[in-house]
């Protein structure tokens, strides 16, 4: 029978301190339970049976900063996740965006870049891609490097194609990539509108006026206080009447800045800055 690993709250606090001091990675704004699970997973991966052994392992700098970040943060993402959201954007929001001379979009926590690409495809079909700039940021520079490459696994494409059609896509998703060696490479044209930068939502600041911010499934890893701080940052970065899109199971209702937002579609978690 395998060992049942366990860590206490105090040990978790210890981990946060060690990673901050030795690796310069700040996990203090991360939701406790999720962090506890990730630390346990990493301990198991590195074959540390006790927290003391794990601490020794960390203290001797057996990981690089990026490895630590990679193992603890979650980078799961996919193209056209929740097609209804994209369909709504295409049908209701793009017409408003069309009146703008230039469109700034921020993908906060873009991970490996599937979501910016999904949006780029729909923008292209609406004739808006050329005047859009999509700022794709993440705290993890490794996933950004992957996003820049635009190479994904072919076996995922079947599901993505279905979701692309359900998002109101007008062509075939295969028009946008070349498949080879079990992978796909997304067309270069789509990436022209993207700017990739490393940016931390925990201690980063606002860098431009955005017409739309997509930050889906990032809040689920943050504490309530941190969520409020990030929402404040988003409100400061949004232009008047700019859109904010959160993950399908997240909500801004609980936040302290909720009164500054207007709900466009509560079920799809699409909000708009009041002014």
């Amino acid at each position: 029978m395998e060992v049942l690993l366990e860590i206490t709250q105090a040990e978790l606090a210890d981990f946060i301190e060690i990673s901050n001091n030795l690796y310069g990675v700040d996990f203090s704004g991360y939701a406790q339970e999720s962090l506890r699970r990730r630390v346990l997973r990493l301990m198991k991966l590195k074959e540390c049976d006790t927290f003391a052994a794990f601490k020794y392992f960390l203290a001797n700098q057996k990981l690089t900063d990026n490895e630590l970040l990679n193992e603890i943060t979650v980078n799961t993402t996919e193209m056209f996740r929740d097609p209804e959201v994209f369909k709504f954007l295409k049908e209701e929001v793009f017409d408003i965006m069309e009146t703008y001379p230039r469109i700034n979009i921020w993908h906060a926590g873009c991970s490996t870049g599937e979501e910016p690409l999904s949006l780029a495809i729909l923008l292209k079909e609406h004739g808006l891609l050329k005047r859009s700039v999509q700022y794709c940021t993440d705290i993890n520079s490794e996933v950004l490097a992957q996003a820049k490459k635009g190479i994904y696994e072919l076996r995922e494409m079947k599901e993505y194609s279905t979701n692309y059609i359900r998002s109101g896509g007008e062509q075939s998703l295969s028009d946008y990539y070349v498949a080879n060696y079990g992978n796909v490479k997304m067309n270069k044209g789509l990436g022209k509108s993207m700017v990739y930068t490393k940016h931390s939502l925990v201690n980063g600041s606002s860098f431009n006026q955005m017409h739309m911010i997509m930050c889906r499934n990032v809040f689920i890893y943050l504490t309530t206080e941190q969520q409020n701080k990030v929402l404040r940052l988003f409100l400061d970065s949004l232009s008047p009447r700019g859109y904010l899109i959160l993950g399908a199971k997240e909500s801004a209702v609980f936040s302290t800045v909720f009164n500054e937002l207007e709900t466009v579609n509560g079920r799809l978690k699409i909000y708009r800055k009041k002014k």
Binding site: Q9, A31, Q32, E33, S34, R37, R38, R41, V74, T76, N217, I220, Y221, K249
Partner: peptide, 13 residues
């Protein structure tokens, strides 16, 4: 998953 204060969290790991 469940947090200390009995709220439920979702996780995409």
């Amino acid at each position: 998953i469940m947090e200390k204060n009995r709220t439920l969290s979702l996780d995409l790991s």
